[in-house]
Design a protein around this nucleic acid. Structure first.
Length: 426
RNA sequence: GGAGAGAUGGCAGAGUGGUCGAAUGCGCCGGUUUGCUAAAUCGGUGAAGGUGUCACAACUUUCCACGGGUUCGAAUCCCGUUCUCUCCGCCA
């Protein structure tokens, strides 16, 4: 959410940004309604002040005058109520419009319509392999080596769910251990997090928990939703809290399950583990001062690169175009891993994503910081980044590391956690 | 799940329906004093919004868990919710 004052003071910039983001917002209407709201707010305050003034007199007043004064105060209160009611209605309307306005965009973010306009900025340390045998995709590998049971998932829970089996379980857990270990080394506080969260937290982070297009599962007869990422809970953790500026940046590493309905995704490339309704993810999250967020964003990107380099997975990094940023991100980098089994001859597939959301989420969630000795508080900046999304990392490892003999080589970084250096052929 | 107690400023802890944004203590910031430190002493010290100012200042509204209600007026009275603590039960 953008600051209303900022919107009013920078109407043209905000409008242009909406166009670049490909989002339809009625900025003019917001400006009109907000202007009107401020007037009503002023009126309401003035009536309230007058009423308070009289009320204060009543206690000391001569009993004979009390009834008159009471009547006077009552009439002011009524006027105040009327103005306040209008003000509240306008406020709700403004808020609705305000929520739809996306964050501003980093000046260096490529301007474009969708993911085709994303700008490749670098490649990982490892190049895609040349295979001298026929490559299998991860679904075929998973079946041949008895690693993944999609049919069982569909039977018990539905299409898009799966059981991991045998060495895939060890691999899944090794990836988690590896990621957490690496992040702890880099000063992140490890946390396991709730897999459900209140709707208002989802909204604060920028998810829409309701509606046909929602990506979110919600629990009946409650205001709880299954989280789509630990970003939600880690971001909600400090809602309505105030940091001391000295303790920032705070860097957290969250382990959670992620649940996504993938509504509207039917028909998109979604074979096997690529687009599933549940997976496990190690997420990085940071709260920073405004002037730290750019640097921390680069740091998160760097960590993602290091993790995937250590996993020996070929990838490229893209700077996400304005049209593909989503609402809360000011700038976003994606790592796309090479997946030899995708498409006809392999394709890049998104495995991580890191966003600098500046104060967009913090404003909704009311996460602030205070500088010692300075008056008042400001909103923090929030950033998030995927360390490892297990399902997609597993795809990349199975497909890139398949061997001519049918086995799967396990990257050296995972040996200590996996307890073996390969998944043997059957 | 049952019974009871509670929720007040950074913390601890008062609070009679009007003089309470809230005593007092601690902490914190600044001054004085003092070889240094400590102690003593004086002053200041919450947040969000609005009007206003070049910027201050000044003024003002709201906030004593949250949401309602009573009242001219609520931290204080009434109702609901949430959370915390203690005891009992159950349980991984």
């Amino acid at each position: 959410m953008l600051d209303r004052k900022y919107i009013l003071a920078n109407v043209e910039e905000v409008k242009t940004n909406c166009v670049n983001r490909g989002v339809q917002c009625d900025v003019d209407k917001l400006v009109d309604l907000e202007t009107e709201r401020k007037e009503k707010d002023l009126q309401s305050q003035e009536f309230n002040r007058l009423a308070n003034e009289i009320s204060k007199k009543i206690g000391k007043a001569d009993p004979s005058e009390r009834e008159t004064l009471k009547e006077e105060a009552r009439s002011y209160r009524e006027k105040k109520e009327a103005a306040a009611k209008t003000c509240d209605e306008l406020d709700a309307a403004v808020h609705e419009l305000q929520l739809r306005i996306p964050n501003l965009s980093h000046p260096d973010a490529p301007i474009g319509k969708d993911d085709k306009d994303n700008l490749e900025i670098s490649r990982g340390a490892h190049l895609p392999r040349e295979f001298d045998f026929k490559v299998e995709d991860h679904v075929e590998i998973g079946e041949r080596l008895d690693l993944i049971d999609f049919e069982g998932g569909a039977r018990t829970t539905g299409s898009g769910f799966y059981f991991l089996k045998n060495d895939a379980v060890l691999l899944d857990m090794a990836l988690q251990q590896y990621a957490v270990t690496q992040l702890v080394k880099r000063g992140f506080i490890p946390m396991t997090t709730p897999d459900l969260a209140h709707e208002d937290i989802l909204e604060g982070i920028g998810f829409n928990p309701r509606g046909n297009e929602t990506q979110v599962y919600s629990v009946e007869n409650s205001n709880l939703c299954l989280v789509g990422t630990a970003e939600i809970t880690l971001g909600g953790l400090y809602a309505k809290q105030t940091f001391d500026s000295e303790e920032l940046p705070v860097k957290l590493c969250g382990v959670s399950h992620c649940f996504r309905t993938e509504a509207g995704a039917a028909g998109r490339a979604s074979k096997g583990l690529y687009r599933v309704h549940q997976f496990t993810k190690i997420e990085m999250f940071a709260y920073t001062l405004p002037d730290q967020s750019d640097a921390v964003h680069e740091e998160l990107r760097q960590i993602e690169c290091e993790l995937f380099d250590a996993l020996e997975i070929p990838y490229r990094v893209v700077d996400t175009s304005t049209g593909d940023l989503g609402g809360p991100a000011f700038r976003k980098y994606d790592l796309e891993a090479w997946m030899p089994g995708r498409g006809d001859a392999g394709e890049w597939g998104e495995v991580t994503s890191t966003s600098n959301c500046t104060d967009y989420q913090a404003r909704r969630l009311e996460s602030r910081y205070k500088v010692k000795g300075e008056k008042g508080t400001n909103f923090v900046h929030t950033l998030n980044g995927t360390a490892i999304a297990c399902s997609r990392a597993i795809i990349a490892i199975l497909e890139n590391n398949q061997q001519a003999d049918g086995s799967i080589a396990i990257p050296a970084a995972l040996h200590p956690f996996m307890g073996k250096d390969k998944i043997a052929a059957k």
